[in-house]
Simulated assay, not measured.
Amino acid sequence: MKNDLEPAKVLLAYEKIIKNGTETEFGKIYQGVEAYSDYDGYTVYMKGNGVELKMGFHNTYHLEYEQERLKEAFIKKVLLLADEKS
């Protein structure tokens, strides 16, 4: 898999969603991206618009999606969130 995301950017976006988002059943949602983690916090999840990102221990990640254009839009959104001034 091509390395589309920098783990540091993913974690920045995750933190912004958790800080600024509104409560959901699993975590928080902010600007259309939902973020949550497993019980111990070692695995974080972000999802939106038909794409789910799972980032685990040692900054490995996996993207699930059905259409390439949805993946690209999701990655763009995550990077925008990471670069956004809080």
Score class of each variant (00 low, 15 high):
F74A: 14
I17G: 10
Y65R: 13
V33P: 01
E66R: 05
E15Y: 01
G41P: 11
N20K: 11
R69D: 12
Y39M: 02
K77P: 11
D38V: 07
K9M: 05
M55G: 03
K9S: 02
A8S: 12
Y30Q: 04
Q67A: 15
E84H: 08
E25T: 15
M46D: 00
K19R: 15
D38F: 05
E64R: 12
S37Q: 12
E72R: 12
T24G: 07
I17H: 06
G21P: 11
V10Q: 08
E25N: 14
G56M: 08
L81C: 00
I17V: 12
V51L: 10
F74L: 14
G27D: 13
Y39S: 08
V44L: 01
I17L: 04
E25R: 14
L63W: 07
T22H: 13
A35Q: 05
L63G: 01
K2D: 05
N59K: 03
E52K: 15
A73F: 01
T22A: 14
E23R: 07
E68S: 08
G56A: 11
N59E: 01
E66C: 00
A73V: 05
A13G: 06
K71A: 13
L70P: 01
L53N: 00
K9Y: 08
I29A: 10
P7I: 03
Y14W: 06
G50K: 06
E84G: 08
E66T: 10
